[in-house]
Design a protein around this nucleic acid. Structure first.
Length: 417
RNA sequence: CGGGGCGUAGUAUACCGGUAGUACGCUUGGUUUGGGACCAAGUAGACCGAGUUCGAUUCUCGGCGCCCCGACCA
């Protein structure tokens, strides 16, 4: 994409109504636009990042057998009354409204109920189990206090997967399988090393749930971590009993702040029972499937990546989620030969399937470099009089900054590695 | 929801009870051209409402909005 055509522009100053680093940098770079507290629109660059994250999540969910669907945001009151979750006294962050005919509807804050209800139409036999289904959908939660940019909003994009198993053993196998897929997602987006599967409060149907906590000083959660054992415990559930369960002593654990980027739960038969989701066992008996639910905040993860990787110059995107893999910059200084050469390279990249953000703007070098640093694309290719004289293009990495002159023949090869 | 803070051009900021200045941006012209150039001329602003006052952007009250700390976070 030609940067001159991009409708967004960068800004030198962060808006004064944002303190969170992720929001400041994402707004300055033209990735997001604030609509109101806790509500952001995703602009072309931001949407590209979000889609890259979604696709990684999608690939890993598919890899463990997840089937994607898309459930509605509008939710009927009747369904949620069956599980007792319509009541404001039970769930206080519903956004609710009414249809023209007066019927109550809510904007989905999660989808256990509709997912379970959908499966009623299709589950009939033990042969139908196990099943894993997920969607990536906007969630609406009327938070009393939105904060931290896109990390805790009232509207946010979340992947939620649900598993249906015929036995506890099968459920546990699915649970571990999805947990493994989560770690793969976090590895692919570059935070695998610093993300811990963390013991957290389980709710009614299991002793613990697991959170995926990414170490960061700006995190809202406090966890206790053993880097050696790769174990972590949320402060919420930290007590002697938990330590015994995990086989660690308090002295091995270090207190850290962390961002919750995922949370997985065993649900037992709470939802299948309440909504009448059953199947026939071999012996002809009617049984309720055992469920699990697995949330991963895609938009929050995007914010977390900014928080974790950004430096004083701007965002540093991990390669897999960068809006473009390559930032091509022409420093033409009015020299038409340089522009022609950069245009040609842009076309060459395109022909080879490499999507580049091409800074073809009529601007000075300093401005282009500063913008490139802010936008945070991992690989930079510069075409200028200097590089033409040296018979190549200049390649540098956003993270390490080291530059080298590379011949055009080599460049495609290099990008692919 | 308790506590605190803040609303001034597109953005960031300043001053002031007598209608607002600076920087960036943007427009025009010129000189520049590898790390946010320079000169010149332009452009554009007091959240809303009420009150006090001769006069309110400034003071008071209310509303709305935003941020932070805490609580909450299925």
């Amino acid at each position: 994409m030609r940067q001159s055509q991009l409708f967004t522009k960068t800004r030198k100053h962060a808006p004064k109504d944002e303190v969170a680093k992720n929001a400041q940098l994402l707004i300055r770079g033209g990735f997001i636009h604030k609509e109101m507290a806790g509500v952001y629109s995703f602009l072309p660059l931001g949407l590209r990042v979000l889609n890259k994250i979604n696709n990684i999540v999608r690939e890993e969910m598919n890899a463990v057998g997840g089937q994607e669907l898309l459930m509605s945001v509008l939710q009927s009151k009747e369904l949620w009354e069956k599980t007792g979750r319509w009541d404001d006294a039970v769930v206080d962050n519903w956004f609710k409204t009414k249809l023209k005919n007066g019927a109550d509807v809510g904007l989905g804050f999660t989808q256990e109920e509709p997912m379970t209800n959908i499966m009623r139409d299709y589950f009939s036999s033990y042969n139908d189990l196990p099943k894993l289904a997920y969607h990536i959908q906007w969630k609406y939660r009327n938070e009393e206090r939105a904060k931290s940019g896109i990390m805790r909003g009232r509207e946010f994009l979340m992947k939620d997967l649900y598993t249906f198993a015929a036995s506890q053993q099968e459920h546990e196998r699915l649970y571990e399988s999805v947990a493994g897929a989560y770690m793969k997602v976090f590895q692919r987006v570059g935070i695998g090393e610093r993300t811990y599967r963390t013991f957290a409060s389980g709710g009614v149907f299991s002793k613990y749930s697991h959170e995926f906590q990414c170490l960061s000083d700006i995190g809202e959660d406090t966890i206790y971590v053993s880097a050696a054992k790769k174990i972590a415990v949320n402060k919420e559930v930290m007590n002697d009993e938990v330590l015994t369960d995990l086989g660690v002593s308090k002295s091995e654990l270090e207190e850290k702040k962390a961002i919750e980027v995922g949370n997985i739960f065993s649900l037992g038969t709470r939802f299948s029972d309440a909504l009448g989701l059953t199947y026939k066992e071999k012996d002809g008996s009617q049984k309720s499937p055992i469920m699990g639910c697995y949330g991963l905040g895609c938009s929050r993860l995007m914010g977390a990546l900014v928080e974790v990787f950004a430096d004083e110059k701007g965002i540093v995107w991990p390669t897999e989620v960068a809006p473009f893999p390559v930032h091509l910059i022409s420093i033409s200084s009015g020299n038409a030969d340089v522009t022609a050469e950069a245009d040609r390279l842009y076309e060459l990249l395109k022909e080879n399937g490499v999507e580049a953000l091409y800074d073809d703007r009529d601007a000075r070098a300093g401005e282009k470099f500063a913008d490139a640093d802010l936008i945070g694309i991992p690989m930079r290719i510069v075409v200028s009089e200097k590089t033409m004289a040296e018979g190549g293009v200049e390649v540098s990495g956003r993270q390490n900054g080291g530059t080298s002159i590379v011949s055009e023949n080599e460049i495609i090869e290099r990008i692919r590695n």
